[in-house]
Amino acid sequence: MKVIFLQDVKGKGKKGEIKNVPDGYARNFLFKKGLAVEATPANLKELE
């Protein structure tokens, strides 16, 4: 799953980066803790 990092995550990505991460990791950790959002067209547009 492609995500946009909202904060630096040690060993995974830095704020503003767009990266592919495993689905479970994204849903169960990154999204729940507010560290990233899914890289949807709407979210990508907001990032610009």
Rank of each mutant, 00 (worst) to 15 (best):
G34F: 10
G13A: 11
N20T: 15
E17T: 06
T40N: 10
K2H: 09
A39E: 02
N43P: 04
A26K: 02
L47E: 07
K32V: 13
G34A: 07
A26N: 03
G11Y: 09
E38M: 10
K19F: 05
G34Q: 09
L6Y: 03
F5N: 00
T40A: 05
A42N: 10
K33M: 15
P22Y: 08
T40P: 05
Y25I: 06
G16E: 02
N43L: 12
D8H: 09
Q7H: 13
A39D: 03
E48N: 12
A26T: 07
L47D: 06
G24F: 14
G13D: 01
N28W: 13
K2A: 11
L30W: 03
K2R: 15
E17Y: 03
K12D: 06
E48M: 14
N20P: 07
V37M: 11
A39M: 07
K2V: 14
G24L: 13
A39I: 05
Q7L: 11
A26W: 09
V21G: 01
K14T: 09
A26V: 07
V37Q: 07
P41R: 09
G16A: 03
L44S: 06
Q7G: 05
K2L: 15
N20Q: 13
I18V: 13
I4A: 03
V9Y: 04
V9T: 03
K32T: 10
L44N: 05
D23R: 14
M1A: 05
K45N: 10
K33D: 07
N43S: 08
K19A: 10
A36W: 01
V9A: 02
K45E: 12
N20S: 13
K32L: 13
F29P: 02
N28A: 10
N43T: 11
V21M: 12
G24W: 15
A36S: 02
L6P: 00
L44V: 11
F31M: 07
F31E: 02
F29V: 12
K19D: 03
K12N: 09
G13K: 01
E38R: 10
V21K: 01
K12V: 15
K2S: 11
G24Q: 13
Q7Y: 13
N28P: 00
A36F: 01
Y25G: 03
G16R: 03
A26D: 04
V37P: 02
K12A: 15
K10Y: 14
V3Y: 00
K12L: 15
A26I: 07
D23F: 14
M1W: 06
A26G: 04
R27H: 09
G11N: 09
K32I: 13
N28F: 13
Y25K: 04
K14E: 06
D23W: 15
E17R: 03
G24A: 13
A39H: 06
G34Y: 09
K32N: 07
N20E: 13
R27W: 10
K33S: 10
G24P: 10
V3A: 01
R27F: 10
T40S: 10
V9K: 02
L35R: 02
P22N: 10
L6H: 02
G16M: 05
G11W: 09
D23Q: 14
L30M: 03
K15T: 09
T40W: 04
F31A: 02
G11L: 04
K45F: 11
E46F: 14
K2T: 14
K15Y: 06
Y25T: 04
N28K: 12
F31N: 01
F5W: 02
D8S: 09
V21F: 09
L44G: 05
I18R: 03
A36H: 00
Q7R: 14
F29T: 07
K32A: 13
V21R: 01
P41N: 09
D23V: 15
E48T: 14
A39K: 02
V9L: 06
D8N: 11
P22A: 10
K15L: 06
A36V: 05
I18T: 07
I4W: 04
A36L: 02
K12M: 15
V9M: 04
